[in-house]
Structure formats: C-alpha cells, structure tokens
Computed example of a mutant assay.
Amino acid sequence: MNAPLVSTPRVEAFFFDADPGTRFSLYHAPDPNRPERGAILYVHPFAEELNRTRRMALLQARHFAALGYAVLQIDLFGCGDSCGDFSAARWDVWRHDLGLALDWLRQRSAGPVQLWGLRLGGLLALDFACGRPVDGIILWQPFMHGRTCINQFLRRQLAAQGDNPPDGSPRSTAAMRAHLAAHGSIEVAGYALTRELAQAIDACDAAVLEVPACPIHWFASGAPAPIRLAASAARLTRRWGERGATVRFHQVDGAPFWTPIVDAECPALLAATSAVFGAGP
C-alpha cells in the first residue's frame, strides 16, 4: 500500500500497489464505540454505473462503519480513479484485484468478511467467491447473467444515437455484437468495450456458479421491485441452497439510482440494508 492520500480517524483514501499499476481505495474504519462485527469488501458496478452509484455506495459504507464494520471500497483496474484504460480491463484482472483487497482487509479485521456487490459487481462477487470463499455475500440489484449486462450496455449506445444514427453505425444489439466480434472492440458511451471482456462477462451465469455455503442477502430496488425478479431469486435460492448457501431476498421500493439521474438516492435501500446488518449483538 502507498502512503494515504487522505487520512481521518475513520476514513483513509490510498492507492494499492498492484500488477499492473495501482488501485484507488477507500477504507472506512469501524466505529470504535461499537462492537466490531467484521469486514465488508465492496465490488462496484460496470462502466458508467460506477460513477452514478458512488454516492449510494459511500452512504452505505458509512452506515456499515457506524454499525461496527470495516469497509473497503476499491476501484478495479481500468475503472474509476485506478490506473489503466477501460479497454485493457479484464475479468480475471478484476478477480485478482479483489483477491489483493480481500487479503488486505483480512489483515485489518479478525472478524468475518463479506462481499458487497452492486449490479455487475454482484455477479463478479459471486464468481470471485467460488474460488475465495467468504463469510457472506450482499447483493444490491445484481445481474444474474453477464450477457444481460452487456446487452443493456449496448442498448444505451443505441438510445444515445436516437432516430438518426451516424451512417454505417450498428442499428441493433446484434449488429453491435457482430461489430465487436469482427473488430475486437466497440465504443459505447465513451468506453471502449473489448471482445475479451465482453466474452468473459457473457459467459458468467450465476445459476451455474458453485457459490460457497454462506448467507446471501439479495436486495432488489425499483419502483417497485419486479415480481419477475422475485421469482428468479426463488429459483436461485433453491439451486444455491443445494450447495449449502442460504438466500434472503429483500424487496425494496425506491429509485433506480444506477440510471442517469442526478444525485439519485434510494433511502429505503440504505435503511433496509442497515436494518439487516445492524440487527443482533
């Protein structure tokens, strides 16, 4: 770890030394007036959703710290304030980043360690936990299929083009995927998505992951959270339960704060999450 950029009694911003380069991180120390409950490693969402959700992630991290948890937020390689271009980002590198962060967090906290993933970060957390078992997983509005995430990402580019797209530009997600396969990358809302990263994300399906035998709290927010999502959660609960995991699905009404809404927040999600993890001794 490099020297802290900002250090207060409760919050420390710094860069991890990693290969390649460095990763920006933010550590929230647990409230010293509360019993220590363990540690939580945050796994952020994909591309621009990282920036749109920073405020909600920061607010919840502060809530967790106030409840007695140590919380580490890390910008993965090629994302946010970490080194590297998004075009160089790879799924395996992100998993490696999480491994470094998890080791660092375990050195700071002797208690149980949980992963907290938002959107694609939820799927990445589940995938990572298959190789590095943890004591629990927190999912905020997760993607269960990587292909769904990539399709939504591509559709944003189509929406941005409107009714008069530039000549020769792809006019559908299928055409965009064909361009990606043929040329190796495609520009979407300022992000250069590579074929390698898209293929790795496409291939990730939560239903077939060998999730660890641990508690999984799945929070779904929306206006309201869709019934279809609850049904999907029920199916996965049965599948993961066969492997020893226990899933609790929490349906929360609130704004989709990962969309392009200025300063969007979901107080109900903050309250529901804090209530679950603030319960007990």
Score class of each variant (00 low, 15 high):
Ala198Leu: 03
Ala198Val: 15
Ala198Trp: 07
Ala198Arg: 03
Gln199Ala: 13
Gln199Trp: 13
Gln199Val: 13
Gln199Asp: 10
Gln199Ser: 07
Ala200Val: 09
Ala200Met: 07
Ile201Ser: 02
Ile201Phe: 06
Ile201Tyr: 03
Ile201His: 01
Asp202Trp: 12
Asp202Ser: 08
Cys204Ile: 10
Cys204Ala: 08
Cys204Pro: 02
Asp205Gln: 03
Asp205Lys: 02
Asp205Ser: 03
Ala206Thr: 09
Ala207Tyr: 00
Ala207Asn: 07
Val208Thr: 15
Val208Trp: 09
Val208Gln: 13
Val208Ser: 12
Val208His: 11
Val208Phe: 04
Leu209Tyr: 12
Leu209Gly: 06
Glu210Asp: 12
Glu210Pro: 10
Glu210Lys: 10
Glu210His: 07
Glu210Gln: 15
Glu210Arg: 15
Val211Lys: 00
Pro212Thr: 13
Pro212Tyr: 02
Pro212Ser: 08
Pro212Cys: 14
Ala213Pro: 11
Cys214Trp: 04
Cys214Val: 14
Cys214Gly: 04
Pro215Trp: 08
Ile216Pro: 00
His217Gln: 05
His217Arg: 14
His217Thr: 10
Trp218Asp: 05
Phe219Leu: 07
Phe219Ser: 03
Ala220Thr: 14
Ser221Phe: 07
Ser221Leu: 05
Ser221Ala: 12
Ser221Trp: 06
Ser221Met: 03
Gly222Phe: 05
Gly222Thr: 12
Ala223Asn: 15
Ala223Asp: 08
Ala223Lys: 08
Ala223Met: 15
Ala225Phe: 10
Pro226Met: 01
Pro226His: 01
Ile227Pro: 01
Arg228Thr: 14
Leu229Phe: 15
Leu229Ile: 13
Leu229Glu: 10
Ala230Asp: 07
Ala230Ile: 11
Ala230Val: 15
Ala231Phe: 09
Ala231Glu: 11
Ser232Phe: 10
Ala233Met: 13
Ala233Lys: 14
Ala233Ile: 11
Ala233Gly: 15
Arg235Cys: 01
Arg235Trp: 10
Arg235His: 14
Arg235Phe: 10
Leu236Ile: 08
Leu236His: 03
Leu236Arg: 02
Leu236Asn: 00
Leu236Thr: 03
Thr237Gln: 04
Arg238Met: 09
Arg239Trp: 00
Arg239Val: 00
Trp240Asn: 01
Trp240Cys: 03
Gly241Asn: 04
Gly241Lys: 13
Gly241Phe: 09
Glu242Cys: 07
Glu242Phe: 08
Glu242Tyr: 09
Arg243Tyr: 06
Arg243Phe: 00
Arg243Lys: 08
Arg243Met: 06
Gly244Ser: 11
Ala245Pro: 00
Ala245Tyr: 11
Thr246Ala: 14
Val247Asn: 07
Arg248Met: 09
Arg248Gly: 06
Phe249Glu: 13
Phe249Tyr: 11
Phe249Trp: 13
Phe249Val: 05
Phe249Met: 06
Phe249Leu: 11
His250Arg: 06
His250Lys: 05
